[in-house]
Design a binder for these strands. Sequence first.
DNA 1: AAATTATTGCAACCGAGTCGCAATAAAGAT
DNA 2: ATCTTTATTGCGACTCGGTTGCAATAATTT
Lengths: 148, 148
Amino acid sequence: MQSEQEILRQYLKENGLRRTPEREHILQEIFATHEHFDVDELYLRLCQKGVKISKASIYRALRLFLDCGLIREVDFSDGHWHFEHIYGHNQHAHLRCLGCGEIVEFEDPNLTLLQGQLGRDYHYQIVSCHLEVKGYCATCGKTREKSL
Amino acid sequence: MQSEQEILRQYLKENGLRRTPEREHILQEIFATHEHFDVDELYLRLCQKGVKISKASIYRALRLFLDCGLIREVDFSDGHWHFEHIYGHNQHAHLRCLGCGEIVEFEDPNLTLLQGQLGRDYHYQIVSCHLEVKGYCATCGKTREKSL
DNA sequence: AAATTATTGCAACCGAGTCGCAATAAAGAT
DNA sequence: ATCTTTATTGCGACTCGGTTGCAATAATTT
Ligand SMILES: [Mn+2]
Ligand SMILES: [Mn+2]
Ligand SMILES: [Zn+2]
Ligand SMILES: [Zn+2]
């Protein structure tokens, strides 16, 4: 199995794009942890590691990584973009607490089946499948009951 | 079963808010069709019907309607908000064509089961569950193959 | 009818994300 | 190794969806 860097380099070559230290630094940072991230967080993490880079370049790199399937968008409905790396990971869905923001990742084999079903039923070529469940975790649920 | 207007009036009364023609016009327009909509579309539709209203009030009303569960956000990942009315409708998910934007709505009984399962497994009180599947419809899929 | 205060419209504002451009630097050709 | 081509970067200006402060208005309560 190729590394994410190899995937990137291959994609760049195939599309007449160039390999740059900026792109590789960003990609490395994205795959350094399993955390979900937004542009500001990523920018900060890079700054802290001494990588000098502009936000414009980060935005541009993220679009590139989306195109080659290394990352995907995660919808937090909070007005700006969040992402996570997906290359090398099983597809998963998110259960998020509206109180504290905790995120539980879970896999659902039914989703894979559903994709096949949808593809067949509606003659669609499925590209992505995002399931986001929201609610209150045990702790936040209790706090909430009291205040009602 | 109560009408959406009754739901709204009840919510307003319970929260010390006021019933206004603006809010009722907006709500009526939202439930006039089954279309998904964004703020601009809704604003235009209201203008065309001669309802004079500011966009600020639409934004404020939509937040209100979200709070009382009359509408929900729909994620199109295109940089601005989309909504649909949900009161009086079964929960459904979306299959959207990345080429032409066509939207197929479908129900998946497994999702309901999954919610119960998640609630039990992780002690979460589930509030919402959004499934968005993206891909290419038969037509757009063919057009796409040619251009590759 | 008067008093209270939520709501509206407007316009100024905010901020995430984009874009044009000049400087830089990859990659290929010689 | 140097030259040429052109993709990429950083910067700052810009866009535009969405928010907010405020004075005027109007829904409710008394
Ligand atoms: Mn995740
Ligand atoms: Mn729908
Ligand atoms: Zn919580
Ligand atoms: Zn299509």
